[in-house]
Simulated assay, not measured.
Amino acid sequence: MTVDLHHLDEGPRDAPPLVLSGSLGSTLEMWRPQVAALTERFRVIRVDHRGHGGSAVPPGPYRIADLAGDVLALLDRLGLDRVAWCGLSLGGMVGMHLASEAPERISRLTLCCTTAHFPDPTPWEERIAAVSSGGTGPLAQGVVARWFTPGWAAAHADVVAEAEAMVAGTPDDGYLACCQAIEAWDHRDRLGAISAPTLVIAGSGDLATPVEPHARTLAEGIPGARLEVLDAAHLASVEAADEVTALIAEISTP
């Protein structure tokens, strides 16, 4: 059963549609740095994954296919046959699934700080255990410490505090079930089926999904994909906001 995703639909109704989908532990507010510029050129739909933000929290575990099914149901409700997609981390995984399994729905694809697979499941097993026993709150500071490079974080304490509150505010059950989806995620053998023009954005300081092997695997596995490496950590859309916004606009323009 699909979830009626909480979303914001902004920008001109007749502009090309662009969906922004965020990371584990985020809400659609993580895309605030992109909204003003992108809504000048696109109809921008920001979404909360199931288990996050204003979306419902069905019983877990989830799979990436479940999250992708939620998106397809939303696009149908909005009357959108085909959209450009930009997903960061978990949102990128959803975008990969859509682009390979429902290619007629994705016109252009931006994959930011994400992966087709985590070879070592141990960190996810440990995080699942931690959330199961103590919830998301105690994890927030450690999670966000990997979202930004140390120097940037030190200079933007207010942004870091907002990010920590966003993670801590994620429903425990939703966060846990999405961790289980990521733990089981392996899309490497389907990358070649992605036909949409694809941009892979990576952060040189990203400890969660480093350029090697994660971004490189995507760039080499998706036909014709282009790789851009920015001076940022995992939440490059915030730390390198202007560069990421420009790249999204470039690849998403029909």
Rank of each mutant, 00 (worst) to 15 (best):
A177R: 06
L227R: 14
H7P: 01
A116Q: 05
L88M: 10
Y175R: 10
P138E: 02
A84S: 15
D76A: 14
T253G: 00
P210K: 01
V44R: 05
T253V: 05
H187N: 14
T198L: 03
A56N: 03
L199H: 06
L18N: 06
V3C: 04
I106P: 02
G134H: 11
R127C: 12
E220F: 01
C113Q: 10
P197Q: 06
P223Q: 01
E29T: 14
G221K: 11
A68W: 08
W31I: 04
D172N: 13
G54M: 05
G151P: 01
S237V: 09
T209F: 09
E243L: 13
R108G: 06
A37I: 12
A37M: 06
R77M: 02
S26P: 02
E228K: 13
Y62H: 09
V143M: 12
D189H: 08
L38K: 00
Q34L: 06
G60N: 05
A140G: 01
W85Q: 13
L176P: 02
E125V: 10
V159R: 14
G142R: 02
D206W: 05
H214G: 10
S23Q: 12
P58T: 06
A177V: 12
A116Y: 01
A15V: 02
D76G: 10
S107N: 12
D76P: 01
D48Y: 07
L199S: 02
L235S: 11
S204G: 15
I194D: 05
R127W: 13
E239P: 00
E126V: 09
V167N: 03
S21H: 08
C112D: 08
G87R: 01
E40L: 13
A129L: 00
Q34R: 04
V159G: 00
L176C: 08
R82T: 13
E164P: 00
G91A: 10
M96N: 05
A154Q: 04
L80T: 06
E101A: 15
C179S: 13
I222T: 09
L67A: 09
A225Q: 03
D158V: 13
V94M: 09
D48A: 12
R32H: 08
R82L: 13
E104W: 11
A168N: 04
A140N: 03
P254V: 15
G87D: 03
L98M: 14
V167R: 11
P58Y: 00
D81E: 13
V238W: 02
R63F: 07
D206Y: 06
R50Q: 04
S100L: 11
L90S: 12
R63G: 15
G25C: 02
A193F: 02
E104Q: 15
D76H: 09
V200Y: 00
P121D: 09
I45T: 09
E239K: 04
H49D: 14
S100R: 14
Y175W: 04
G92K: 03
L176Q: 12
A116T: 06
A154E: 03
E183P: 03
D242V: 13
G205D: 11
E220I: 04
L109E: 00
Q34G: 08
I128M: 11
G174Q: 07
V131H: 05
P17L: 09
T198W: 02
P58A: 07
G25A: 01
A177Y: 08
V71H: 14
P119H: 06
V44N: 07
L218N: 03
R63C: 12
L18P: 01
P61N: 06
R13C: 00
A36V: 04
G53E: 10
